[in-house]
Design a binder for these strands. Structure first.
Lengths: 343, 343
DNA sequence: TTGTATGCGTTATCAC
DNA sequence: GTGATAACGCATACAA
């Protein structure tokens, strides 16, 4: 690996001259620049970004930590973030952090390998985030408890969990459903828990009984869990009437749908179902599934902008918080499709 | 940001002593180590990974370049790679490189920000790869033309494209189908093109006519394109009999399936369909779709191992190539489900 | 057991 | 227009 030193030696000029030439500094003559560039080509010189970062005390990268890069909510976010960062010529690096593998992510944080981080993974603890965030590396976390954030360089992107789960429950009730089953998913999923609470609140608001027999635990958020739990649901349908099923996740709903169809139960004629998140798959099945869109992209656009503000314009947490919450950051939208019947 | 210098000053010992203490060197006394650690805690010291990398002339990271991190073929690969790297305590960093955004990936390569790279994106050109791969940073690319690889530090993971597309076509023929339509996807997809060739070869082998009317261009590999092109297919079914449809991708097949069902065409009673890749979604629809599994994970496990060999054991391209191709790296497997009817 | 000196590859600050 | 030199934060060979 050739370095600027090698170039300098070859051309018998100083290292700094080479550096400046390579960076097209106006202080360097045109002929020198050309000589340097030519030599660089000859020696197969490639610059060492690490050394540059060290010298500059900046990495120019934003670290994005994901628990599961498969999920559409992640890829949506990714797109939004990348869009904003590209404008500013900031690099984006993704590392995953989940149950079984989070060392890389933690190392990147604890070793200050970024100028800012967006943490979408729950597996990086509040404590960790609090101890390592600093002025040169603010950390954005999503949907955590505000009271657990003690560091002034970690900003929590609050989500208005008040309405979560209420919207779609109300929608089902308005459509004439009374016996609405609820399928819980992964216990670790914060959002999913809030949806359940919204469901309960809404039933109460409409003076509907909360029947424990209609609450199911899938113990996971994906297709397979949905498929499996729906076996149980079908069993209980023998004794209790169920008009509609609120799956806490689209994937669960898709799995459930398939089980229902296999058992000859028609959706939505025999039972209506809804999912949550507006994952692409929800429209790919027959019947397509009514769901709710969280507008993750819009949120992340704003997060990215706030983050850039802190990185490049020396804004403080207080500054960006105002903008982040200027209008309600969170608003969900019901996507009506064909899995719900009005009665 | 405190550095070891600060610690040294505080404790009035040398910088190197601090460095060694922090790295738990046996040369340093226990009491000194404790003092140092305590001081580090007090000063809120966090180590600077960048500086370490510079000094060590190693980054300990493998760079994974993806075009579309959404695709299951990517997440499958990710899992396999991460599994192998974790064993060796090597970090994995993902950056995306697609049509509109590949600067980050290119910068990471050209600035030597990794000890090795796996490039799954077609948007990083052969030329680029050839100019930047070096002994300290080998680059693995997937399924490119071997003759375009001129650098001895880029290893091309060949895939046995001979059989691709033949297997499933033969399967359809054996099931009694004669008029088999083919739906092409994105023109940029290398694998998809090979599948088409396999399809053609197989028809010839069985002395079946290749009917241009039954070849469709979806111009994309995803659900929406499948949905759209199937409109055309249904139109031509009025004039030409079609027993089966070979969608070049599962997503296309899922989109097609939905359109067929909407139009009241039964799958597989009226027409059989197959996809390719064994994406999770192919089993989530009703009827579930017969497809072929490329065993991407197994391939990537082997790739990761080869790469680790080059990184840590100084193995050469020649060395790893042998192992990579020891047994056929590529073998596809037909996953029989419910979208094909025997006639 | 500890300290000194040097180097990693680059940029920045001066002085020339 | 150019060249020494220090500095970035850390690790290491060697000396003490």
């Amino acid at each position: 690996m050739a370095t600027i030193k090698d170039i300098a030696k070859l051309l018998d000029i100083s290292v700094s001259a080479v550096s400046m030439a390579l960076n097209d500094s106006p202080e360097i003559g045109v002929k020198t620049k050309e000589k340097v560039r030519e030599a660089a080509r000859q020696l197969n010189y490639v610059k060492n970004g690490i050394a540059i970062d060290l010298q500059r005390q900046k990495t120019n990268i934003v670290l994005l930590i994901a628990d599961n890069p498969t999920r559409p909510y992640f890829t949506d976010s990714l797109q939004a973030i990348q869009h904003e960062l590209t404008k500013k010529n900031i690099d984006l690096v993704i590392v995953t952090a989940n149950n079984s593998h989070k060392i890389t992510a933690e190392r990147f944080i604890s070793e200050n390998r970024a100028d800012a981080v967006i943490c979408m993974s729950r597996f990086i603890s509040d404590e960790f985030v609090n101890t390592y965030a600093n002025k040169n590396m603010p950390i954005f976390v999503l949907g955590r408890s505000p009271d657990l954030i003690t560091n002034d360089n970690v900003v929590n992107v609050a989500i208005d969990y008040e309405r979560v789960g209420e919207d779609i429950t109300e929608y089902l009730i308005q459509a004439g459903h009374r016996n609405i089953a609820f399928v819980k998913g992964s216990k670790a999923s914060v959002g999913a828990n809030y949806r359940y609470e919204g469901y309960v609140r809404t039933l109460r608001r409409f003076n509907l009984e909360i029947d424990k027999n209609l609450i199911f635990e899938a113990n996971g958020n994906d297709y397979d869990h949905g498929y499996k739990i729906t076996e149980k649901i079908i069993d209980t349908m023998a004794e209790h009437t169920i008009d509609a099923i609120f799956y806490v996740t689209d994937d669960l709903a898709v799995g459930g749908l398939q089980k229902l169809l296999e058992k000859g139960i028609s959706v939505p004629d025999d039972v209506s179902i809804v999912g949550y998140n507006n994952y692409p798959i929800s429209k790919m099945v027959t019947p397509s599934i009514t769901t709710v869109d969280l507008h993750q992209q819009k949120i992340m656009h704003r997060v990215a902008k706030a983050l850039i503000g802190m990185m490049t314009e020396n804004k403080t947490k207080a500054d960006v918080m105002k903008k982040l919450q200027k209008d309600t950051i969170f608003y969900s939208e019901i996507i009506e499709r064909n899995s719900v019947k009005k009665r």
